[in-house]
Each structure stands twice: as structure tokens, then as C-alpha cells.
């Protein structure tokens, strides 16, 4: 038998709800409903990716300097964790379809571990960014001595060791003197970090929601609750979790890798 052949036998039975004519219609209805939700999520994240693209095109040099200070090792570790979590989730759905509760629990537990691991790595990364004063706001601070910072000709013309608010008084100058240009660049870098924190923060919120849903499912499956007799709750959670993975697949190169060359 070829490995590409689809398995069609050995699946656990499902209960047909009275409003449906047959079980395939019921399953399709659940999945289309979930995809409708995911389409709204695509619209939501899509708009943020569009904003990132727009401002990156508008301020390429400042954005490249800001890209360069993000630590790729954190982003890469999280990408590996999420892709692995997606694989474990797929295996979990498969086990539930086959009615294997023990394996469902095992794969779901591994997926939960990956989700928690992602948040642990992310919290270390956020801590390092807060420590370096990269969070947008009055405490935002930028130094050329930041590890991995861009040191090309664009930034070397001006001293970049002054805090953003220290040069505000110079902005009244009608000509583009060095401090004024520096202030503008500081605002552009803050814009990048605003987008970075909004996008990764919203993604992290989705991960937390995923943990809550998967944690609930884990206990329902553990105690054989009737609501999880059907495999659909696991399948729909899986769709959500794969979406969270896809968002990171795009976030990782667009935030961490671009501008590293």
C-alpha cells in the first residue's frame, strides 16, 4: 500500500445531531464554521501585516536598524516550537478520529507543552527588550552599541546615544539639523517596535487562548466527558492551533530575518 493512499477505515463513530441529515453534512458544517472564524482572523492579522509592509517601505533604513536588534535565536526557537506543536496537534486529531484516547491525551499534552514553551521563550525575549528600553514610550532608548545593531553609514552620521525625549527641544528648529533628524529616526524606530509589540503580543494572546482551550480539552478527554466523544472539538481546536502556527511562520522572517544580511 502506498504511503500516499488515504486511510478510510477504523474511525470512531460520531453522534448525529437532529438538525442534520447525515454525519458528513454535520462535520462539514462544523469545519466551514471554524474556517469562517479563521477568515476573520486572517483579515485581522492581514491588516497588521499590511501596516508593517507600508511603514517598512516608507522608512527602510530606520526599520532595518530596528530589525537588526531583534534576537533571531528567540524567534527561531519559537518557530521550531510552534511547527512541532502543529505536528503534535495533527497527530492528536488523528488519534481522536481513531478513538484512541490514550494517544490523544499524549499528543495533546505535547502540544500544550509546546504552547507553554513558546510563552516562556517569548517572556525571556520581552524581558530583554524591556531591559534594553525598546518598549515604545517615554522610556524608549536607542544606542548604537546595542548588540547586533546596524552600524551602516545611515546611522553613523549622527550620535544615537541620546534618549528620545532628550532631543525633543531641538525639534523646534526649522532646518533639518542632526538632532532633529535623530529625533525623527527615533520616532520611526519606535514605530517599528510599536508594530513589533502589537503583532507579537496579539499572537501571544492567541497562544494563551489556545492553551486555555487545549487545557480544557485535555481534562475533558482525560475524564471521558461525553462532550468530547466526537472528535470535532479536537479537530476544530487543531484548526485554530495551525492558524496560530501560520501567523508565526510569516512573523518570524518578516520581523527577525529581514534586514539581517
Amino acid at each position: 500500500m502506498s504511503i500516499f493512499e488515504l486511510q478510510r477505515e477504523g474511525f470512531a463513530s460520531q453522534r448525529l445531531a437532529h438538525q442534520f441529515e447525515e454525519i458528513n453534512q454535520q462535520n462539514e458544517c462544523y469545519i466551514v464554521g471554524m474556517w469562517t472564524f479563521l477568515v476573520t482572523e486572517i483579515m485581522f492579522f492581514g491588516a497588521l501585516f499590511l501596516i508593517l509592509s507600508l511603514y517598512r517601505m516608507a522608512y527602510p533604513a530606520s526599520f532595518e536598524q530596528a530589525h537588526a536588534v531583534l534576537l533571531v535565536s528567540f524567534g527561531l526557537t519559537n518557530a521550531v516550537i510552534l511547527i512541532s506543536g502543529s505536528y503534535f496537534m495533527t497527530m492528536c486529531v488523528r488519534a481522536k478520529m481513531l478513538g484512541d484516547y490514550r494517544m490523544t491525551q499524549l499528543w495533546l499534552g505535547l502540544t500544550l507543552l509546546c504552547a507553554c514553551g513558546f510563552l516562556v521563550v517569548k517572556s525571556f525575549e520581552y524581558a530583554s527588550e524591556f531591559k534594553d528600553h525598546h518598549f515604545p514610550g517615554p522610556s524608549f532608548h536607542w544606542e548604537t552599541t546595542t548588540p547586533g545593531a546596524y552600524t551602516g553609514s545611515y546611522s553613523s552620521q549622527f550620535s544615537t546615544t541620546m534618549p528620545a525625549n532628550a532631543v525633543n527641544s531641538a525639534a523646534v528648529s526649522s532646518t533639518y539639523s542632526a538632532p532633529v533628524t535623530q529625533n525623527l529616526n527615533m520616532h520611526k524606530r519606535q514605530l517599528f517596535f510599536s508594530l513589533y509589540f502589537i503583532m507579537t503580543g496579539l499572537h501571544a494572546v492567541h497562544v494563551i487562548i489556545g492553551i486555555l482551550i487545549m487545557g480544557t480539552l485535555f481534562f475533558l478527554i482525560r475524564y471521558r466527558h461525553p462532550s468530547v466523544d466526537d472528535y470535532m472539538p479536537v479537530e476544530l481546536t487543531g484548526l485554530y492551533w495551525h492558524f496560530v502556527d501560520i501567523v508565526w511562520i510569516f512573523l518570524f522572517p518578516l520581523l527577525y530575518l529581514i534586514g539581517k544580511q
Binding site: 504511503i3 500516499f4 493512499e5 488515504l6 486511510q7 478510510r8 474511525f11 463513530s13 460520531q14 453522534r15 448525529l16 447525515e22 454525519i23 458528513n24 462535520n27 527561531l76 518557530a79 521550531v80 511547527i83 512541532s84 502543529s86 505536528y87 495533527t90 497527530m91 488523528r94 478520529m97 518570524f252
Partner: peptide, 25 residues
Amino acid sequence: LKHADHAMPKPIIYTATWIMLLGLL
């Protein structure tokens, strides 16, 4: 209790996809 007309690939396809995703990463 009904049996749906399920169809899904063998686990090796999922494993191969996982390895491919990590490789591309």
C-alpha cells in the same frame, strides 16, 4: 451513532510535512 466518510493521510505524510517545514525554516 454514524460513521462519516473520513479520509486522511498516513502518519508518515504528517511526519514528512513536519520535517519539510523545519527544513524550510
